[in-house]
Design a binder for these strands. Structure first.
Length: 605
RNA sequence: GGGCCGGUAGCUCAGCAGGUCAGAGCAGGGGACUCAUAAUCCCUGGGUCGCGGGUUCGAGCCCCGCCCGGCCUACCA
């Protein structure tokens, strides 16, 4: 554990068709940040990248509905999403977007490499297009009468009434779900990624992860291998990355499929980060170093893209599929070390749905409550290994009983006793067995909590960390330093010293989960410098997107390398002045539950 | 239709490779204390582990069937 590891923390790219809700950030956002912060504190070299995913039919359709360009739409939501993720304290080294010149170039390079190695071939298929726009009409955007059961609301891919799988061309009276017009079925040529060429390698790779990955991810992925088929990676659409081949590059209505370009974002964002950091080759340490590790975080709906398609693309580009080949000009690229998937968060028993307005947006949440309160809830009660339900009653309870009453109160009672009675961090006198035992337990927690964090078991890690908080509260109650004030002031000083050391340790243990409030505790204890870095928005320029060919956009970045936070018990310094503390967390009134439920009912109408 | 996951005390959830596995937190009840945002600490109640079969000396944990919920099903991400 002494050598520094290179750890890529690859975070799923939120789709820029609207603001993100708390279900989204509980899947990819908070878990990835807890992991990255812990790894940095452990002394490892972390590169945490992501961005907004901005291409594809849904964005084009939404833009048309609103009467704006796709570019205008994604500019709007890219900014909103980036602001929300900063507000949550997610410590991206770079959070960018898929509509940058750099991303286009890297995507085209990957395509070219895969094509040259023979893993991409073209095929003519019959597909539905919208006569008025010429764009592909995805199967689910075609409606009509089911040829099997006669149900009128069948979609092009499936009939919701009889459950049969359909082909859109078989629908009776097909119509576009977007504008009602009758789709045309035309021959259209598309490129396919030859996934079967990777089936064997993927299978070996996945089997080597037994016992390491969460079992649901592994089982799901292995099962998919049986039915691996070539997958189309282009669309009839003008909103996307152009296809970098003669005869295709300038076709206005052929673009790479949004999923093909989105997963490449992990690589393009790493390269963009390196360029902006002043060392354009620096990304290679996380992608081509044989020792480097790559952890990918996402919700369960994204597993297939990270355990099958993206690995296949990486293998093919590196010249390692059934057809062999040579690595592209970037060189061979690493496969994921681990694919960490969360399940889904439901909302008061219902599935989140923006369209039905069963939703709590990150922005709305953070306007009324603190980021650490949400982060705490997501880790403690979020969908780590199975779907879980968000309820306002449980949120208020967790906030009040666990954050405020247990942890906040421990900080408050310890520091205020020391500040009022002594005025600074007291020197410890002779330690009793009880003192030593509780201090040892606190030190040991760095190992137990750390082991769980290393294995992406966040819920268990937080439970262990909170156990030290309970032990510290018990220690103080048992030792009753307030009773020692007159009888044995030296002993009181020792007890308070021990208590403050426990507070300091607990603060360190909780830092990955609760960075903002941990910084506050660090300051309360007289710490100097930055304990753990917080992200910031920065405006940068790009050579595409703007009217004159130049645009600016916000990225998330931050300085996390020179922080004071380290994953170990750091001795407190006697003599450090202490001021009476202010409360660490806000206690929420029970009325919050009714207010929020009423708000939800009103919105859902 | 197929694949995967889940259905454990009033509530939210743990139970890692079958034999102290029937648990934690909260809510409820009793007590201690007063440093602290009336917070803390101790004790306590007890649920046919979705339903029906089966394997086993022994099954929440394995197998089969069924019911309910979620995700995916490859042109919605």
């Amino acid at each position: 554990m002494s050598s520094k590891r290179h750890i890529l923390t690859a975070v799923a790219w939120p789709y820029a068709n609207g603001p993100r809700h708390i279900g989204h950030v509980s899947g990819f956002g908070v878990p990835s940040d807890v992991f990255a912060r812990f790894q940095r504190m452990s002394g490892n070299n972390v590169l945490m990248v992501s961005g907004t995913d901005e291409h594809g039919t849904p964005i084009q359709v939404l833009a048309d509905q609103e009467g704006v360009s796709a570019r205008e739409l994604v500019d709007r939501y890219n900014r909103i999403i980036a602001e929300d993720l900063v507000a949550l304290g997610l410590s991206y080294d770079l959070f960018t977007r898929t509509t940058t010149a750099n991303h286009y170039a890297v995507v085209q390079e990957l395509f070219t490499g895969l094509h040259r190695n023979g893993y991409i071939f073209s095929k003519t298929t019959k597909g539905a297009i919208s006569p008025s726009t010429g764009r592909t009409l995805p199967d689910r955007y075609v409606e009509g009468t089911c040829p099997i059961c006669g149900y009128d609301g069948a979609r092009g891919d499936q009939c919701d009434n009889c459950g049969n799988q359909l082909d859109p061309i078989d629908l009776i009276n097909p119509r576009s779900k977007i504008n009602g017009e009758t789709p045309e079925f035309v021959d259209t040529e598309h490129f396919m990624l030859d996934l079967p060429a990777f089936a064997e390698l993927l299978g070996d790779w996945l089997k080597s992860k037994q016992g390491q990955w969460r079992p649901n991810v592994l089982k799901f992925s292995l099962n998919l291998l049986d039915e691996l088929q070539p997958r189309a990676i282009t669309r009839d659409l003008d909103w996307g990355v152009p296809i970098p081949l003669e005869g295709w590059r300038d076709q206005p209505n052929k673009r790479l499929y949004v999923w093909f370009d989105a997963v490449i974002g992990y690589l393009s964002a790493s390269i963009e980060w390196a360029k902006r950091s002043g060392d354009p080759e620096a990304w290679r340490k996380w992608w081509q170093n044989g020792e480097a590790e790559a952890f990918y975080f996402m919700g369960k709906d994204n597993i297939v893209f990270h355990s099958e398609i993206w690995p296949a693309m990486l293998l093919g580009y590196s010249g390692q599929g059934a057809r062999g080949g040579e690595p592209g000009s970037l060189g061979a690229l690493n496969l994921p070390t681990e694919v960490v998937s969360s399940e889904f968060l439901t909302m008061e028993g219902r599935k989140f749905s923006s369209s039905r307005r069963v939703v709590i947006y990150v922005r709305d949440f953070l306007e009324r409550y603190d980021a650490d309160a949400l982060r705490y809830y997501i880790v403690a009660a979020g969908p780590e290994t199975q779907d879980t339900d968000f309820t306002w009653a449980e949120f208020v309870r967790r906030n009040n009983d666990e954050l405020v009453a247990a942890w906040g109160n421990l900080v408050n009672r310890s520091i205020s006793m020391a500040a009022k009675n002594i005025g600074h961090i007291p020197e410890a006198g002779e330690l009793t067995d009880v003192d030593r035992a509780v201090l040892d337990a606190s030190k040991a927690a760095f190992t137990t909590v750390g082991e769980r964090l290393n294995r992406a078991q966040f819920k268990a890690a937080l439970q262990e960390a909170m156990r030290t908080v309970a032990e510290a509260n018990k220690y103080i109650s048992d030792q009753a330093p307030w009773q020692l004030k007159k009888t044995d002031p030296k002993r009181m000083a020792t007890v308070l010293h021990v208590a403050l050391q426990l507070v300091s340790d607990a603060k360190t243990l909780l830092t990955p989960f609760l960075p903002a409030s941990s910084n506050k505790v660090y300051e309360m204890l007289g710490g100097q410098g930055t304990w753990t870095g917080m992200p910031r928005l920065e405006e940068v320029t790009d050579s595409i997107g703007g009217e004159d060919g130049v645009s600016t956009y916000p990225v998330i970045t931050g300085d996390y390398a020179d922080n004071e936070a380290r994953w170990e018990s750091i001795p407190i310094v006697p003599g450090t002045p202490l001021k009476p503390p202010t409360p660490l967390f806000r206690k929420l009134d029970q009325s919050v539950v009714d207010e929020e439920l009423a708000r939800l009912e009103e919105a859902a109408g």
